[in-house]
Design a binder for these strands. Structure first.
Length: 714
DNA sequence: GCGATCAGGT
DNA sequence: CACACCTGATCGC
């Protein structure tokens, strides 16, 4: 939960995500997303009164956030005071003090944050420097490098301070499976269950919060089953969401809620109240999205855990993992960082020990840092003259930091006014004392021991595993065990070969940061962590390893048996879902721009681009409209339903490799970033695996890399 | 009656 | 162990 007090040291006239206490005097308000813990004071009478007596004060947010906010009648009074800013469109804002007439201009840019629909980060540029407030965010590794507006020319902007979402800034949360991995796990589970019969339904036990929409959309798109929800009026102007949710209770996927929904579920009743259809009782499983995390060197990354006869937990995270946070911050490399959140169990000290070494003031700048993403993912043809920053040293490699602009000479001492006026600024103040009193040793904290998964009952196993590895070398590989991965996934020997040959950065370059050695992690999804035993499923009873079908077992199929035909203990043996790593290995990268529906929530206004169509047409096949697909699939479902009366054995579904639709196969190969509309760098492409290999070799040989245009590029 | 805060729940 | 809520009790206005 955010503990940010609302104000930036550099621009105390602004209030962000806090609207109480001294924030009542702000000249402008900003809301990063529509979660309650970022809306404190937003509907309080005090602020309401202020609005009534002011002509100038505005609330700035993304178009989606505005829409979501105004659909809630409690916030309707904001209507004439909200300004929706388009994402990734720098906007000049005049900050006027209405009592003195004093005026100051600031430029703000909204950047997609990948946290929930409409969620953005705010990049402020003004006379006190460039400051990034991340709000809550989940960005995969390397996504900062793809954000054009974080760059100036070919380099990262010179950012004075980052106010950072540090929810999972603790090595315990080293790795959280990517959005794609989680989505695929849930998709397979839901597919397996719902295809048993039309009376097999799934209840997604989601919390009351925005952020699950992309899950609903993807399930609906893939399975042709709309998701039942309590309300959909907030999405009335977001057809790309609206199309996939419904208030019709007679659907096989539910995300509806009821105050006593757990009791309902125990009685085989959905939160919306239904227990049967056409007189036939429903068979309900629940899937509870929850954050699962894994330590640095964990060998397995199950994204689905069975917690009971018909209950599952599925990995799902709104926030960046520890390694994602570090990747993000080290890419930005600001002068200062301030945590917005204190991770539970973590102290301010610990967080700052982790973050400070990634900041400029504490970073050794004698040693060049190689920034693979900064160069690979961005086109390097730009003329240096189009930058607005000091780029005199154009002979420097592009990973070098830009020079520090003049206003940074003082290391940005927080302004006294900011501190004294900020009643909620306790975090900031203690942070300040940090900088004054503590010397941070760079790099050491990158390699602290990591605890393992949050799986309730297999902690022991994990700990042992972890212990045995505690004192190993610091440079860590997140590359997959290619052989076991390959056999696990049943891929051909040729593919195996190329997989085993995946070039590693640390083979060619001296990496001094763990993040960089695992830079490719998201490109080779959790295969990076795939050791011997990996599947999407596990049971939470501590015998998960033994119940997984071994990675050596190449006969991949997905089974879910009808309950009742066997005890759930034995049933677990039939529960297996092909790990998505195979898909990654089979198809390598796939540009999200190359497929149809695809794009998990590609059209989802997750980043506030509901009104921005520029991504929508990309690669979409008009003859393949999702309407048609959904209709067809619904028909299929109806036919399948006839089989619903057959015996349990007959109902076993087997999703063989070949039975997967091409669409799905393609879709799975998107980078984890594809859930959000993080734009690719203009003219950049996501290299295919073999091509990447080739590029790496050239890089290692010191040759220049020529870029070819990819035909499916947008 | 409303809001703020806290405890306890999922 | 998380998050992002929700409900209910209590207190103050």
């Amino acid at each position: 939960m955010s503990r940010f007090g609302g104000r930036l040291r550099e621009y105390p006239q602004l209030s962000i995500d806090r609207f109480d206490h001294d924030n009542l005097r702000a000249r402008a308000y900003f809301l990063s997303h529509c979660h309650k813990d970022h809306m404190k004071g937003l509907r309080a009478p005090a602020l309401r009164r202020r609005l009534q007596s002011s002509l100038k004060v505005k609330l700035y947010c993304s178009p989606v956030t505005k829409e979501l906010l105004l659909t809630n009648s409690k916030y309707e009074f904001w209507e004439n005071h909200i300004v929706a800013l388009e994402v990734e469109t720098p906007t000049q804002i005049s900050l006027v003090d209405e009592t003195t007439g004093e005026k100051e201009d600031i430029e703000v840019t909204l950047l997609p944050a990948g946290h929930c629909p409409g969620s953005v980060m705010f990049l402020f540029q003004g006379e006190n420097g460039t400051v990034l407030y991340t709000g809550d965010f989940r960005l995969a590794k390397g996504e900062a490098a793809r954000m054009e507006l974080l760059h100036s020319g070919t380099r990262v902007k010179d950012i004075q301070s980052v106010y950072l979402d540090t929810t999972f800034c603790d090595p315990r949360f080293y790795h959280i499976p990517s959005r794609e991995e989680c989505l695929n796990g849930i998709l397979e589970l839901v597919r397996s269950w719902t295809s048993l019969s039309r009376y097999h339904v799934v209840w997604l036990n989601c919390k009351a919060a925005y952020g699950y929409e992309y899950l609903f959309i993807n399930l609906s798109e893939e399975l042709g089953i709309k998701v039942h929800v309590n309300r959909l009026d907030m999405f009335k102007n977001m057809p790309e969401i609206l199309y996939h949710i419904t208030t019709d209770r007679y659907t096989q996927i539910h995300a509806c809620r009821h105050p006593k929904d757990d009791d309902y579920f125990r009685g085989n009743r959905l939160p919306c109240g239904i227990t049967c259809q056409n007189g036939t009782p429903l068979h309900v499983i629940s899937i509870k999205p929850s954050t699962m995390w894994f330590g640095e060197r964990i060998k397995k990354t199950n994204v689905i855990v069975r917690t009971g006869e018909s209950t599952y937990r599925a990995c799902f995270s709104f926030h960046s993992s520890y390694s994602e946070i570090k990747d993000f911050l080290s890419y930005i490399c600001p002068v200062n960082v301030y945590p917005n959140v204190l991770p539970v169990g973590g102290s301010e000290d610990k967080v700052m020990e982790i973050l400070q070494p990634l900041c400029r003031s504490y970073r050794r700048n004698t040693e060049p840092r190689y920034k693979p993403l900064g160069t690979l993912k961005r086109a390097c043809k730009r003329n240096l003259s189009d930058t607005d920053e000091d780029e005199l040293f154009d002979t420097e490699p592009t990973f070098a930091r830009p020079k520090i602009a003049k206003y940074q000479g003082e290391e940005s001492k927080p302004s006294k006014t900011a501190q004294s006026e900020n009643a909620e600024g306790n975090i900031n103040e203690s942070t300040e004392s940090y900088r004054a009193n503590t010397t941070y040793t760079s790099l050491k904290v990158d390699f602290v021991d990591c605890e393992e998964s949050n799986d309730d009952d297999d902690d022991d196993d994990d700990d042992k595993e972890d212990d045995s590895e505690k004192n190993t070398a610091q440079v860590l590989s997140h590359e997959p065990d290619a052989n076991s991965l390959a056999s696990c996934n049943g891929i051909s020997s040729k593919q195996q070969e190329s997989n085993a040959d995946i070039p590693r950065w640390d083979m060619f370059f001296k990496c001094n940061k763990v993040d960089e050695s695992s830079e490719n992690e998201d490109n080779f999804p959790s295969s990076a962590d795939a050791g011997g035993s990996q599947s999407l499923f596990s049971d939470s009873d501590g015998v998960s390893d033994s119940t997984h079908i071994s990675s050596q077992n190449s006969s991949q199929s997905t089974h879910i048996s009808e309950q009742g035909s066997q005890g759930w203990d034995s049933q677990i043996d039939t529960v297996l879902i092909a790990s998505q790593e195979r898909n990654a290995a089979d198809f390598g990268y796939f540009s999200r721009c190359g497929s149809r529906t695809a794009l998990p929530s590609h059209e989802t206004p997750m980043d506030g681009q509901a009104d921005n169509n520029r991504w929508k047409p990309l690669g979409q096949n008009p003859s393949c409209a999702s309407d048609v697909i959904c209709d067809l699939k619904i028909e299929d479902c109806d036919e399948d339903a006839e089989a619903g009366t057959a015996s349990a054995q007959d109902l076993l579904v087997e999703i063989s490799d070949s039975s997967r639709t091409p669409d799905l196969e393609l879709k799975r190969d998107f980078q984890s970033s594809s859930d959000f509309e993080i734009p690719l760098t203009p003219e950049a492409e996501i290299p295919q695996r073999d091509k990447l290999h080739y590029l790496y070799k050239k890089l290692a040989a010191g040759e220049s890399i020529m870029r070819k245009n990819s035909p499916e590029k947008r």
